[in-house]
């Protein structure tokens, strides 16, 4: 089927989407020539900066979470492709407020390559930067092989926690420790029911039969654990939640953050139904849902499906999640 998207020249997709985004949220963010989305009002001196990078086409991620209490700068690449190391280096320098910078990187091949090069350059220039890699897709491989696991929507709560810690004036080592602790205690699993079209090439990103779903699908349509027949909301939620709870070894008495993230073409109606079942099962098991979010934060064009994310929280993390933030796509007052 031919691509049906409201676009202009595919070469200008990213510059045009960033232009619109900047006009829409002029009070909170601005966009620089090198594809950096930065806070309109820079962070106070003496606080740790938080920077991330990633391909475009996942809106509102990642740049939707730039603002007070979350990210200082997001470096946006082309569609599904990491930005260049020079732009990332520029971002690390721009985010420096005298307390160092945390560089959050999602585990995807291009992102990691660009980030590693950036870190080499930053080291040569003597910048005070610590890198934090997110890899929580439990479909990628066992917990003992984190490098096999992709970075999915878990980056969003992670930005929230480290952003709040940075805003509270914590040191770079402390901010890193909080981020690292959450990273080790989070797990995400994705399911897809229909493919998406790559907006620059017009090609379908993968194939799925009308009556099938694939659990473990990556956010670019990378293959997961195999196709199965489409199941009901409750069955799907139960299957995925069971895999996540097992992976994280969640016990009765634990408190969790739960996120249901729509991939682009799945309705909020469906996401609420899924969340309802997840909440019921967790409550039955004596696991507390301390924090939760149902939203389209990290999308894959018009892919139908969702990512289910859980993270085990300490009381301190609950406070950081509830701390004020003011970004275009997440606000806590």
């Amino acid at each position: 089927m031919a691509m049906k998207k409201f676009i202009n020249d595919p070469d200008n997709l990213v510059s045009e989407l960033l232009e619109g985004y900047a006009l829409l949220h002029a009070g909170k963010i601005r966009v620089t020539g090198s594809g950096m989305v930065v806070r309109a009002k820079p962070k106070d001196e003496g606080k740790v900066g938080v920077v991330t990078l990633g391909g475009s086409g996942h809106e509102p991620a990642l740049s939707g979470f730039v603002g007070e209490g979350m990210l200082d700068i997001s470096v946006a690449g082309e569609i599904f492709a990491a930005p260049g190391a020079p732009a990332c280096l520029e971002a690390l320098k721009a985010a420096e407020r005298g307390a160092g910078v945390l560089f959050v990187v999602l585990n995807h091949p291009g992102d990691v390559l660009a980030a590693n090069l950036t870190m080499e350059m930053a080291e040569k220039e003597g910048l005070n930067v610590k890198q934090l890699l997110t890899h929580e897709d439990i479909a990628g491989g066992p917990r003992s092989e984190p490098e096999q696991r992709r970075g999915l929507v878990g980056c969003i709560p992670l930005y929230k926690l480290v952003g709040a810690a940075a805003e509270a004036g914590r040191s770079l080592d402390e901010v890193l420790a909080i981020g690292d602790a959450y990273e080790r205690n989070m797990a995400t699993l994705a399911v897809a029911v229909t493919s998406a079209t790559h907006p620059a090439t017009g090609e379908a990103m993968f194939e799925l039969a009308d009556d099938e779903m694939e659990i473990g699908m990556g956010q670019h349509g990378e293959a997961g654990t195999g196709c199965t027949k489409l199941k009901s909301a409750d069955e799907t939620a139960e299957t995925m939640l069971e895999m996540l709870l097992k992976d994280l070894n969640v016990q009765s008495g634990d408190q969790l953050l739960v996120m249901i993230n729509g991939s682009g073409a799945t309705t909020l109606m469906e996401l609420f139904i899924i969340f309802r079942r997840v909440h019921q099962v967790l409550t039955e098991k004596g696991v507390k849902v301390a924090c939760s979010r149902v939203a389209e934060d990290l999308t894959v064009q018009e892919m139908a499906g969702f990512q289910m994310h859980i993270g085990r929280l300490t009381d301190e993390m609950v406070d950081l999640w509830n701390a004020p933030c003011d970004t275009p796509f997440m606000t806590v007052r």
Binding site: G77, E78, A82, A85, A87, G110, A114
Partner: peptide, 18 residues
Amino acid sequence: GWAILSAGGGSTGPLFGT
């Protein structure tokens, strides 16, 4: 090399740039 690094493009920029 620097120009290709700056072009980004996922793995393409870093690998061909270096």
